[in-house]
């Protein structure tokens, strides 16, 4: 079904492309938002990825590879977006609940916040790596191909990125507890 749509879109059928777009835009936007951590920029990157896909689709020789090809275009669009539209990062107060046991839902929230901060401290290229490997569940080889990197680079960058996240999480855990955002 998708192959047929891709083939029609490759031949210039805009309706087929629209159908492909509607079937994939939620996932693509979600990936862009994870990488860019900004809804507006994610929308821009998603748009640019689809426009690039439409313009270059006639060159795609294997319709079965449409999806990874589109992801690659999206990642490139995210990098471009990150480079060209640097925006001011608004510092937020750090709130961490008192540790009352691992079953406390607040701890789960704290862990989530810490992970978010560690993730946001990464460069877009690092976030893309994490999203491809851990969110989409792609093996390193496929991640390497989509991100356009040698396998060895993906491996070392992934290790380096996780080390960086661990360091951030560790530093976060040592920060003075802030109650309600107040020192």
């Amino acid at each position: 079904m998708q192959r047929e749509l891709v083939e029609r879109a490759m031949a210039g059928d805009r309706d087929a492309f629209t159908e492909l777009q509607r079937g994939s835009i939620d996932k693509l936007y979600a990936i862009a938002r994870l990488i860019l951590r900004d809804g507006d920029r994610a929308q821009d990157a998603t748009q640019e990825a689809y426009i690039a896909a439409w313009r270059r689709l006639s060159g795609l020789r294997d319709p079965d590879r449409f999806e990874p090809w589109l992801r690659r275009l999206l990642v490139n669009a995210c990098y471009h977006e990150a480079r060209t539209q640097k925006r001011r990062v608004i510092a937020e107060g750090r709130v961490r609940p008192i540790d009352t046991g691992s079953s406390d839902p607040a701890i789960v929230t704290a862990d989530r916040d810490e992970l978010a901060r560690a993730f946001e401290a990464l460069a877009p290229e690092q976030r893309a790596l994490i999203v491809m490997h851990y969110h989409l569940g792609l093996p390193m080889q496929e991640t390497a191909l989509i991100l356009g990197l040698p396998l060895g680079t993906v491996k070392s960058r992934l290790n380096r990125t996780k080390q960086q996240m661990r360091a951030t999480l560790e530093a976060d855990a040592r920060l003075p507890l802030l109650e309600g955002g107040a020192p």
């Binding site: 939620d26 936007y29 979600a30 938002r33 809804g39 989530r112 969110h135």
Partner: peptide
């Protein structure tokens, strides 16, 4: 965490 963070819809 990434699963939780994922926006379900565009």
């Amino acid at each position: 965490w990434l699963d939780e963070e994922t926006a379900p819809y565009a």
